[in-house]
Amino acid sequence: MPRCGRPGRRAHAGALAERRVLPADPGGRRMRRVPATITPYPDGPLIARGDIELVDAGGAPIATRRRTVALCRCGLSTIKPFCDGTHKAAGFRTE
């Protein structure tokens, strides 16, 4: 699974990456915008980085806590829409 910002820590699939532009964060500092990118990892998840907003099929927002999130592509994750690493055991392969 891809690593997140801190060395030695793995990105948890349930901890999403979203950074909304707000007037100020709780500490009173201004938050900066980060362009959104989506990167497909070979035989693995889609990695979404930056300012993103995830919504479910009904349009309801899905809560996020981080700027980087791994999204399931194999369809076998138990924490959809996030990746839980199940693709490895299932032998999921991309073309």
Rank of each mutant, 00 (worst) to 15 (best):
M1V: 09
M1A: 10
R3K: 15
C4T: 09
C4W: 08
G5W: 04
G5C: 04
R6A: 14
P7T: 06
P7G: 08
G8W: 00
G8P: 00
R10A: 10
A11Y: 05
A11W: 03
H12S: 12
H12D: 10
A13C: 14
G14V: 00
A15T: 06
L16Q: 01
L16S: 03
E18T: 09
E18Q: 13
R19K: 13
R19P: 04
R20D: 10
R20N: 10
L22A: 15
L22F: 14
P23W: 12
A24L: 14
D25R: 13
P26T: 08
G27T: 11
G28A: 10
G28W: 13
R29K: 09
R30E: 15
R30L: 13
R32E: 11
R33L: 14
R33M: 15
R33W: 15
V34K: 03
P35T: 03
P35K: 04
A36R: 03
T37L: 09
I38R: 07
I38W: 07
T39K: 02
T39A: 02
P40S: 01
P40D: 03
Y41F: 14
P42C: 01
P42F: 01
P42N: 02
P42K: 06
D43V: 10
L46D: 06
I47W: 05
I47T: 06
A48V: 08
A48Y: 01
R49D: 05
R49T: 00
R49N: 05
I52G: 01
E53A: 15
E53M: 13
L54H: 00
V55D: 04
V55S: 07
D56G: 07
D56E: 05
A57N: 09
A57H: 13
G58R: 08
G58Y: 07
G59L: 11
G59D: 07
P61R: 12
I62G: 09
A63L: 11
A63E: 13
A63V: 10
R66Y: 15
R66W: 14
T68N: 04
T68P: 03
T68Y: 01
V69W: 03
V69P: 00
L71T: 02
L71E: 04
L71G: 05
C72Y: 02
R73E: 02
R73W: 01
C74K: 05
C74S: 02
L76A: 15
L76P: 02
S77C: 00
T78F: 07
P81Q: 01
F82E: 00
F82K: 04
C83V: 00
D84S: 05
D84V: 04
G85Y: 00
T86K: 12
T86H: 11
H87C: 11
H87W: 08
H87Y: 11
K88V: 14
K88Q: 15
A89H: 10
A89D: 11
A89T: 11
A89K: 11
G91D: 09
F92R: 00
E95H: 14
